[in-house]
Design a protein around this nucleic acid. Structure first.
Lengths: 105, 105
DNA sequence: ACAGAAGATGGTAATATATATATATTGTAA
DNA sequence: TTACAATATATATATATTACCATCTTCTGT
Protein backbone atom coordinates (compact mmCIF):
# COMPACT_ATOMS: atom_id res chain seq x y z
CA UNK A 1 0.00 0.00 0.00
CA UNK A 2 1.16 3.52 -0.70
CA UNK A 3 2.48 5.15 2.38
CA UNK A 4 0.79 8.24 3.67
CA UNK A 5 2.28 11.51 2.57
CA UNK A 6 4.22 13.55 5.04
CA UNK A 7 2.26 16.70 5.71
CA UNK A 8 4.87 19.29 6.55
CA UNK A 9 3.34 21.76 8.98
CA UNK A 10 3.50 25.38 7.98
CA UNK A 11 6.36 27.50 9.26
CA UNK A 12 8.38 25.11 11.34
CA UNK A 13 10.89 26.75 13.62
CA UNK A 14 14.35 26.97 12.13
CA UNK A 15 16.86 24.51 13.50
CA UNK A 16 18.48 27.26 15.48
CA UNK A 17 15.31 28.64 16.97
CA UNK A 18 14.27 25.14 17.83
CA UNK A 19 17.53 24.41 19.58
CA UNK A 20 17.39 27.60 21.58
CA UNK A 21 13.72 27.14 22.41
CA UNK A 22 14.39 23.61 23.59
CA UNK A 23 17.16 24.84 25.82
CA UNK A 24 14.97 27.43 27.43
CA UNK A 25 12.12 25.01 27.88
CA UNK A 26 14.40 22.36 29.29
CA UNK A 27 15.70 24.84 31.78
CA UNK A 28 12.17 25.49 32.99
CA UNK A 29 11.53 21.76 33.20
CA UNK A 30 12.79 21.36 36.73
CA UNK A 31 10.61 21.61 39.81
CA UNK A 32 12.78 24.05 41.70
CA UNK A 33 13.59 26.23 38.74
CA UNK A 34 9.94 26.33 37.78
CA UNK A 35 9.04 27.34 41.31
CA UNK A 36 11.70 30.01 41.29
CA UNK A 37 10.42 31.69 38.16
CA UNK A 38 6.94 31.39 39.54
CA UNK A 39 8.12 33.30 42.56
CA UNK A 40 9.71 35.91 40.37
CA UNK A 41 6.63 36.47 38.28
CA UNK A 42 5.39 39.37 40.36
CA UNK A 43 8.74 41.12 40.35
CA UNK A 44 12.22 40.80 41.70
CA UNK A 45 13.10 38.89 44.84
CA UNK A 46 16.28 38.36 46.79
CA UNK A 47 17.89 34.96 47.09
CA UNK A 48 16.88 34.86 50.73
CA UNK A 49 13.28 35.54 49.83
CA UNK A 50 13.41 32.84 47.19
CA UNK A 51 14.86 30.45 49.72
CA UNK A 52 11.96 31.06 52.04
CA UNK A 53 9.49 30.90 49.21
CA UNK A 54 10.73 27.60 47.86
CA UNK A 55 11.88 26.03 51.11
CA UNK A 56 14.95 24.73 49.29
CA UNK A 57 18.48 24.87 50.72
CA UNK A 58 20.55 27.93 49.90
CA UNK A 59 23.10 26.22 47.70
CA UNK A 60 20.44 24.66 45.55
CA UNK A 61 18.64 27.94 45.12
CA UNK A 62 21.85 29.67 44.09
CA UNK A 63 22.75 26.87 41.73
CA UNK A 64 19.44 26.80 39.95
CA UNK A 65 19.32 30.57 39.77
CA UNK A 66 22.72 30.39 38.12
CA UNK A 67 21.37 27.88 35.63
CA UNK A 68 18.43 30.15 34.84
CA UNK A 69 20.75 33.08 34.49
CA UNK A 70 23.14 31.21 32.22
CA UNK A 71 20.26 30.67 29.82
CA UNK A 72 19.20 34.29 29.96
CA UNK A 73 15.94 33.48 31.68
CA UNK A 74 16.67 35.67 34.67
CA UNK A 75 19.16 38.34 35.58
CA UNK A 76 20.22 39.84 38.87
CA UNK A 77 21.47 42.99 40.50
CA UNK A 78 23.23 43.37 43.77
CA UNK A 79 22.00 45.84 46.35
CA UNK A 80 24.21 45.81 49.39
CA UNK A 81 24.28 42.36 50.87
CA UNK A 82 21.35 41.20 48.81
CA UNK A 83 21.12 40.02 45.26
CA UNK A 84 17.82 40.49 43.53
CA UNK A 85 16.75 38.28 40.68
CA UNK A 86 14.17 39.06 38.06
CA UNK A 87 12.82 37.46 34.93
CA UNK A 88 14.33 38.69 31.70
CA UNK A 89 12.91 36.16 29.26
CA UNK A 90 9.49 37.53 28.37
CA UNK A 91 8.17 34.19 27.16
CA UNK A 92 8.37 32.80 30.66
CA UNK A 93 5.20 34.54 31.71
CA UNK A 94 3.15 33.07 28.90
CA UNK A 95 4.62 29.65 29.47
CA UNK A 96 3.67 29.80 33.12
CA UNK A 97 0.17 30.77 32.09
CA UNK A 98 0.00 27.80 29.74
CA UNK A 99 1.15 25.55 32.52
CA UNK A 100 -1.49 26.84 34.87
CA UNK A 101 -4.18 26.27 32.30
CA UNK A 102 -4.21 22.72 33.58
CA UNK A 103 -5.83 20.11 31.50
CA UNK A 104 -8.21 22.56 29.93
CA UNK A 105 -7.98 22.89 26.15
CA UNK B 1 19.58 46.17 58.05
CA UNK B 2 16.29 44.31 58.07
CA UNK B 3 16.09 41.85 55.30
CA UNK B 4 13.42 42.29 52.65
CA UNK B 5 10.22 40.43 53.23
CA UNK B 6 9.43 37.46 51.08
CA UNK B 7 6.49 38.37 48.88
CA UNK B 8 4.70 35.13 48.22
CA UNK B 9 3.05 35.34 44.81
CA UNK B 10 -0.63 34.63 44.73
CA UNK B 11 -1.79 31.10 43.94
CA UNK B 12 1.41 29.19 43.48
CA UNK B 13 1.00 25.81 41.84
CA UNK B 14 0.68 22.98 44.32
CA UNK B 15 3.75 20.85 44.75
CA UNK B 16 2.13 18.11 42.75
CA UNK B 17 1.03 20.29 39.89
CA UNK B 18 4.46 21.83 39.80
CA UNK B 19 6.16 18.45 39.65
CA UNK B 20 3.94 17.23 36.87
CA UNK B 21 4.22 20.48 34.95
CA UNK B 22 7.99 20.38 35.21
CA UNK B 23 8.02 16.84 33.89
CA UNK B 24 5.92 17.75 30.91
CA UNK B 25 7.99 20.84 30.18
CA UNK B 26 11.21 18.96 30.57
CA UNK B 27 10.00 16.39 28.08
CA UNK B 28 9.39 19.15 25.55
CA UNK B 29 12.83 20.58 26.22
CA UNK B 30 14.63 18.43 23.69
CA UNK B 31 15.22 19.46 20.10
CA UNK B 32 13.89 16.33 18.49
CA UNK B 33 10.91 15.95 20.78
CA UNK B 34 10.04 19.59 20.28
CA UNK B 35 10.27 19.14 16.52
CA UNK B 36 8.09 16.06 16.74
CA UNK B 37 5.27 17.79 18.55
CA UNK B 38 5.63 20.68 16.16
CA UNK B 39 5.07 18.24 13.35
CA UNK B 40 2.05 16.82 15.11
CA UNK B 41 0.44 20.17 15.70
CA UNK B 42 -1.66 20.05 12.56
CA UNK B 43 -2.91 16.54 13.21
CA UNK B 44 -1.73 12.99 13.37
CA UNK B 45 1.26 11.69 11.46
CA UNK B 46 2.83 8.28 11.02
CA UNK B 47 6.27 7.49 12.33
CA UNK B 48 7.54 7.38 8.80
CA UNK B 49 6.17 10.83 8.09
CA UNK B 50 7.76 12.09 11.28
CA UNK B 51 11.03 10.53 10.25
CA UNK B 52 10.95 12.40 6.98
CA UNK B 53 9.82 15.57 8.65
CA UNK B 54 12.55 15.57 11.26
CA UNK B 55 15.27 13.89 9.27
CA UNK B 56 16.21 11.91 12.35
CA UNK B 57 17.03 8.19 12.32
CA UNK B 58 14.15 5.81 12.88
CA UNK B 59 15.24 4.49 16.23
CA UNK B 60 15.59 7.94 17.66
CA UNK B 61 12.17 8.98 16.43
CA UNK B 62 10.59 5.90 17.96
CA UNK B 63 12.46 6.41 21.20
CA UNK B 64 11.51 10.02 21.61
CA UNK B 65 7.93 9.32 20.64
CA UNK B 66 7.92 6.69 23.35
CA UNK B 67 9.19 9.28 25.82
CA UNK B 68 6.47 11.70 24.82
CA UNK B 69 3.89 8.97 25.08
CA UNK B 70 5.10 7.86 28.50
CA UNK B 71 4.43 11.39 29.75
CA UNK B 72 0.98 11.49 28.20
CA UNK B 73 1.97 14.19 25.75
CA UNK B 74 1.09 12.12 22.71
CA UNK B 75 -0.80 8.93 22.00
CA UNK B 76 -0.91 6.65 19.01
CA UNK B 77 -3.09 4.30 17.07
CA UNK B 78 -2.08 1.60 14.69
CA UNK B 79 -3.55 1.38 11.22
CA UNK B 80 -2.15 -1.56 9.36
CA UNK B 81 1.57 -1.30 9.16
CA UNK B 82 1.56 2.32 10.23
CA UNK B 83 1.34 3.88 13.64
CA UNK B 84 -0.11 7.33 13.84
CA UNK B 85 0.80 9.67 16.64
CA UNK B 86 -1.18 12.66 17.82
CA UNK B 87 -0.93 15.21 20.58
CA UNK B 88 -3.04 14.49 23.63
CA UNK B 89 -1.73 17.11 26.02
CA UNK B 90 -3.74 20.22 25.19
CA UNK B 91 -1.22 22.59 26.76
CA UNK B 92 1.34 21.67 24.13
CA UNK B 93 -0.28 23.89 21.56
CA UNK B 94 -0.18 26.97 23.73
CA UNK B 95 3.36 26.25 24.76
CA UNK B 96 4.42 26.01 21.14
CA UNK B 97 2.72 29.31 20.50
CA UNK B 98 4.60 30.89 23.38
CA UNK B 99 7.83 29.54 22.00
CA UNK B 100 7.14 30.95 18.58
CA UNK B 101 6.39 34.34 20.03
CA UNK B 102 10.13 34.86 19.98
CA UNK B 103 11.52 37.63 22.00
CA UNK B 104 8.32 39.57 21.88
CA UNK B 105 6.63 40.31 25.22
C1' DA C 1 39.47 44.75 62.07
C1' DC C 2 36.08 41.24 63.38
C1' DA C 3 31.90 38.53 63.40
C1' DG C 4 28.11 37.23 61.10
C1' DA C 5 24.72 37.39 57.21
C1' DA C 6 24.02 36.70 52.15
C1' DG C 7 25.33 34.48 48.29
C1' DA C 8 28.36 31.85 45.08
C1' DT C 9 31.16 28.10 43.91
C1' DG C 10 33.85 23.61 43.85
C1' DG C 11 33.97 18.69 44.43
C1' DT C 12 31.54 14.47 44.26
C1' DA C 13 28.56 10.37 44.23
C1' DA C 14 24.24 8.94 42.44
C1' DT C 15 21.27 9.06 38.79
C1' DA C 16 19.36 10.25 34.46
C1' DT C 17 19.63 11.16 29.67
C1' DA C 18 21.36 11.02 24.95
C1' DT C 19 22.99 8.71 20.98
C1' DA C 20 24.18 4.82 18.21
C1' DT C 21 23.89 0.13 16.78
C1' DA C 22 21.82 -4.03 16.60
C1' DT C 23 17.92 -6.85 16.95
C1' DA C 24 13.04 -7.97 17.58
C1' DT C 25 8.13 -7.46 16.49
C1' DT C 26 4.20 -6.78 13.65
C1' DG C 27 1.90 -6.25 9.43
C1' DT C 28 1.49 -6.63 4.26
C1' DA C 29 1.91 -8.32 -0.15
C1' DA C 30 3.17 -11.88 -3.16
C1' DT D 1 5.52 -18.97 3.94
C1' DT D 2 8.77 -15.76 2.35
C1' DA D 3 10.33 -11.29 1.98
C1' DC D 4 10.12 -6.83 3.11
C1' DA D 5 8.37 -2.49 5.18
C1' DA D 6 7.17 -0.13 9.53
C1' DT D 7 7.95 0.32 14.14
C1' DA D 8 9.65 -0.91 18.68
C1' DT D 9 12.97 -2.25 21.92
C1' DA D 10 17.47 -3.82 23.92
C1' DT D 11 21.94 -2.74 25.04
C1' DA D 12 26.16 -0.19 25.45
C1' DT D 13 28.64 3.90 25.99
C1' DA D 14 29.16 8.60 26.67
C1' DT D 15 27.64 12.60 28.79
C1' DA D 16 24.85 15.58 31.70
C1' DT D 17 22.13 16.58 35.92
C1' DT D 18 21.04 16.36 40.57
C1' DA D 19 21.57 16.98 45.25
C1' DC D 20 24.67 17.52 48.94
C1' DC D 21 28.33 19.29 51.64
C1' DA D 22 31.86 22.25 52.54
C1' DT D 23 34.17 26.26 51.61
C1' DC D 24 35.00 30.87 49.89
C1' DT D 25 33.73 35.66 48.99
C1' DT D 26 31.49 39.92 49.71
C1' DC D 27 29.07 42.99 52.35
C1' DT D 28 27.28 45.02 56.83
C1' DG D 29 27.27 46.56 61.48
C1' DT D 30 29.95 47.33 65.45
Amino acid sequence: MARPAAVPPAQPLTRDMLTRAAEMIKCLGHPLRLRLVEGLEAGELSVTALQEYTGAPQAQVSQQLAALKARGIVDCRRDGAFVYYRITEPRVHSILNCVRACDRP
